[in-house]
Design a protein around this nucleic acid. Structure first.
Length: 840
RNA sequence: GCCGACGUAGCCCAACGGCAGAGGCACGACGUUUAGGUCGUCGUCAGUGAGAGUUCGAAUCUCUCCGUCGGCACCA
């Protein structure tokens, strides 16, 4: 690096630069990002440039990048994420906002605990060291935050408020404990939320196959908010695909519930079923219960008992994976399909026509959805069709399939048939409505909306997380630890063993306690909370991280919330973003957050992933490109610009195709231009054109910032620098370039601004420039003249030219006249001043 | 299987119904340079995945197909 600085600057270039207006320093200084970046990072930190108080009079703007899990030094994904956030922070500040831009660390979680199991080092020092590393590498790329507001999930203060919120949820019935079949990951040695199990039945984190276990667990009643979580998606400025993913996940379906009375049963026993197709009820040819359904024993006849018990036992031992593996509609054939169910020996009556149909058990009916029982209509449901074929059950079509229908079950629209009083209706929707109306009139059932979303299982059998603050007392049952005794903190001196149970369970001193209510001996809950709990409200705590009385002051939250721009990875499209929405609504309803804030993130941007050679960059693949190497070689500004320039922010980028050389060269050129080294001042003739181009640049870049089109904004700045190189500079043009560059490449912009305007001046304290449309207008523009859509001529015209004038100019063109061959155009489309099209 | 995005020079990408090229990488020539690098100037390369339609005009809108990626998928 020293060699670079002292290298003699080319004499030839110097001679071009002798006419510069800048005082010609005799030692021409090459752009060396290292010292410049260190200087400005120190200054921003020491001066608290981006600290913002809650009573700041400027209009508020809250920009937030998802806080990271502290994994040590930053990787390219972090750089990309924080570059976007930092750019917005600086841009909005220049536009006159008080920008809240906080940062913290999602510091609970499995990696630290797994490391503890391996090395014996306690997760806390391990985590703190990782945070220090990550924090310094975030600062090294020039990202600025109000670090006074920093949050760490494992901080006892944060744990306290996490637990207070849990207690309020408990008191409000939003947190509850129940026995349930839950997802168990053998790799992570803990239960998982549904959201953490991938579609193939494996754990999203470890990749191990997840099995089912019956356990007493804590849940949050997120399903209470299913409808609102679905409805309010519409008003959010989020990527459509994220909204679609959430809609799919919530999975609303509309249908009806009604009873099927058991035939020949003395107590008029009935099975309640849920269906989305009540219009097909006349086609019911059997009914199905989930194997875990409570009425299974009651409905099993003596002859069938052995077969049923055998079937139920077999299903119970099947893992999720095996149940999915049997989903082989095509190849497996009747043998496999018939294995998926068994006859109970009982019959129920179809209330629509009074006919008895047999009752089966089948593994494709799930206890956890609807009522755990269905009416089966093979003609209009493929699963029922497959099952019916395997068990030789009849099929009755109630919707007329279209002409030439070759398929099996027909689920499309069509006229009703075989359905008594529904016959003659020509569409499914009307028939559905009529069937529901009939059920309600007869008092047999009613309209019913169901959701796929399940309550959020928050218990984790792990150590490195927020303890669930309850005590189990033999006399008082579940007792919440009183708020004035919070936080409940896990002891440090525990033994980390991969035992499948939290080290807390083996820690007698922690486990055995006294009941806060009766004072008698009691046991603590030894499970901790899902770490997604921590990230479900951290953005609220950022508004008021100093509060000692409550998680945050609702007034402070009201000032900043909702987050104006949230930035993160698409991988959180369902989990984190759904939980955070739930928390925001629940806290508002409990009066802990402002009632007016029902959604946490007004605008969401999901950035693309950084790949290398087509695959995901990851430590396990060993294909990481270390950002610090890039910073050392090219500087943080060049790295930031490379990320911004790499392509549309929402798209994945392949680092192999990212040319950091290009952005590095561009910055060197800016450096020389701003110091008067690269080009002379523009001539009096050229200067007004240059300034006009600067105005156009302002308009363009400002617009592109609004649209997140940073790749083209960088291109525009490059284009402009090339223009200055060619045409010469003006002070206005160079200053404009630096102002527009300031959010993207903050160090070099700040340095050059200070050099041009004097010590104590700061480019980031300047107002974002506003283009003057009058000055931005070019004085001549090129008008294209087409004949039948083919370009025949290009003519320089006044930008104010009107339609008639444009037409006249077009017709006067010799090459156009030749193309017209003296004929009159049939039609003239004039779009002054850009284009005239003459149609023959 | 269903839903959704995306297919443009050798590569990454622009073009918000109006000249297919803004920018960068790579490559080449020339200049600067003792040389390499840096720097500067200039240049090479596609007709937009395929087909049809709408339009005065389509990369852009519509439809079908192909390919890539993502989400959902026993949810009754």
């Amino acid at each position: 690096m020293v060699e670079l600085v002292s290298a003699p600057f080319s004499g030839g270039v110097r001679s071009i630069g002798t006419v510069t207006a800048e005082p010609a320093a005799d030692t021409t200084e090459l752009y060396d990002p290292g010292p410049v970046e260190a200087k400005w990072q120190r200054r921003w930190r020491d001066e608290g440039t981006y600290d913002v108080d809650n009573d700041d009079p400027r209009p508020p703007f809250y920009v937030l990048s998802m806080y990271p899990y502290p994994s040590g030094r930053a990787h390219m994904g972090h750089v990309r994420n924080y570059t976007f956030g930092d750019l917005i922070t600086r841009h909005r500040t220049m536009q006159g906002h008080a920008v809240l831009s906080p940062m913290g660390f999602d510091s609970f979680g499995l990696p630290a605990e797994n490391a503890a199991i391996k090395t014996g080092l306690h997760p806390r020092p391990f985590t703190d060291a990782r945070i220090d590393e990550l924090k310094s590498s975030i600062e090294r790329i020039g990202a600025v935050y109000d670090w006074r507001r920093e949050i760490r999930s494992h901080d006892p203060e944060y744990i306290r408020w996490n637990q207070v919120i849990f207690q309020r949820f408990l008191a409000a019935g939003l947190a509850y404990r129940r026995n349930a079949p839950v997802n168990w990951c053998p790799g992570c040695q803990t239960v998982l939320a549904n959201e953490q199990v991938l579609a193939d039945g494996t754990c999203e984190r470890s990749g191990d196959p997840v099995s089912k276990r019956d356990l007493e667990q804590w849940f949050f009643a997120i399903t209470n908010y299913a409808e609102e979580l679905l409805d309010e998606l519409d008003g959010l400025e989020w990527p459509e695909r994220v909204k679609t993913m959430q809609r799919n996940w919530i999975g609303r379906s509309e249908g009806a519930e009604f009873d099927l009375v058991v035939a020949d049963h003395p107590d008029k026993l009935a099975i309640r079923i849920y269906t989305t197709r009540p219009d097909t009820s006349f086609g019911m040819t059997y009914a199905v219960l989930a194997p875990e359904h409570p009425l299974v024993a009651e409905l099993t006849s003596d002859e069938q008992r052995a077969a049923v018990e055998d079937f139920v036992a077999r299903v119970a031992t099947k893992s999720e994976i095996e149940r999915l593996a049997s989903e082989d509609h095509s190849a497996a054939g009747a043998a496999a399909a018939s294995d998926r169910g068994v006859f109970t020996g009982s019959y129920v009556l179809n209330p629509f026509n009074g006919r008895p149909v047999p009752v089966y058990l089948a593994d494709y009916v799930l206890m956890g959805y609807g009522t755990g029982a269905i009416m089966a209509v093979p003609a209009e449901d493929q699963r029922d069709w497959d099952f019916a074929k395997a068990h030789r059950l009849p099929v009755v079509r109630t919707v007329q399939p279209p002409e030439g229908w070759q398929g099996e079950a027909y689920t499309g629209d069509g006229p009703k048939i075989n359905s008594e009083w529904l016959d003659g209706i020509t569409d499914v929707a009307t028939a559905k409505a009529k069937a529901i109306e009939w059920l309600e009139e007869q008092g047999l059932g009613q309209r019913k909306v169901n959701y796929r979303l399940r309550d959020w299982l928050v218990s984790r059998q792990r150590y490195w997380g927020c303890p669930i603050p309850v005590v189990y007392c033999p006399t008082d049952g579940i007792v919440a630890v009183p708020e004035d005794q919070l936080p409940v903190l896990a002891p440090d001196e525990v033994e980390f063993r991969p035992s499948g149970e939290s080290p807390l369970k083996a820690h007698a001193g922690f486990r055995h306690t006294t009941c806060p209510t009766c004072g008698g001996p009691a046991e603590r809950e030894t499970d901790t909370m899902d770490t997604f709990v921590d990230s479900s409200w951290y953005f609220l705590r950022f508004c008021d991280p100093w509060s000692k009385e409550r998680p945050f002051d609702p007034g402070a939250a009201e000032r900043w919330m909702p987050v104006d721009q949230y930035i993160g990875g698409i991988e959180h499209a369902i989990l984190h973003l759904l939980y955070a929405r739930f928390y925001t609504k629940a806290l508002a309803d409990l009066g802990m957050a402002p009632a007016s804030v029902r959604e946490p993130f007004r605008r969401l941007f999901t950035q693309g992933m950084v790949r290398l050679g087509g695959t995901r960059m990851s430590k396990s693949k060993g294909n990481l490109v270390a950002p610090e190497d890039m910073v050392a070689a090219y500087g943080a500004d060049a790295l930031r610009l490379a990320h911004l320039f790499a392509g549309p922010p929402a798209d994945d980028v392949d680092w192999e195709t990212v040319g950091i050389e290009g952005t590095s060269r561009f910055l060197k050129r800016v450096w020389r231009l701003a110091l008067g080294e690269a080009a002379p001042p523009a001539s009096p003739d050229a200067a007004p054109q240059v300034d006009r181009a600067a105005h156009r640049l302002v308009a363009r870049v400002t617009d592109e910032f609004e649209r997140w089109s940073y790749n083209t904004a960088v291109a525009a700045l490059m284009e402009f620098a090339n223009l200055l190189q060619r045409e010469g500079t003006t002070d206005f043009a160079v200053d404009t370039l630096l102002l527009l560059l300031a959010p993207m490449a903050p160090h070099i912009s700040a340095e050059l601004w200070e050099r041009r305007h004097g010590a104590g001046t700061h480019v980031h304290a300047q107002r974002w420039p506003v283009a003057d449309p009058a000055l931005a207008r070019a004085d001549r523009v090129t008008m294209v003249v087409q004949v039948n859509g083919k370009v025949k001529d290009r003519i320089e015209v006044d930008p104010e030219i009107d339609e008639a004038g444009a037409e006249a100019v077009a017709l006067a063109s010799p090459s156009v006249r030749e193309a017209l061959d003296d004929a009159h155009p049939k039609r003239v489309i004039a779009r002054p001043p850009r284009l005239v099209n003459l149609v023959m």
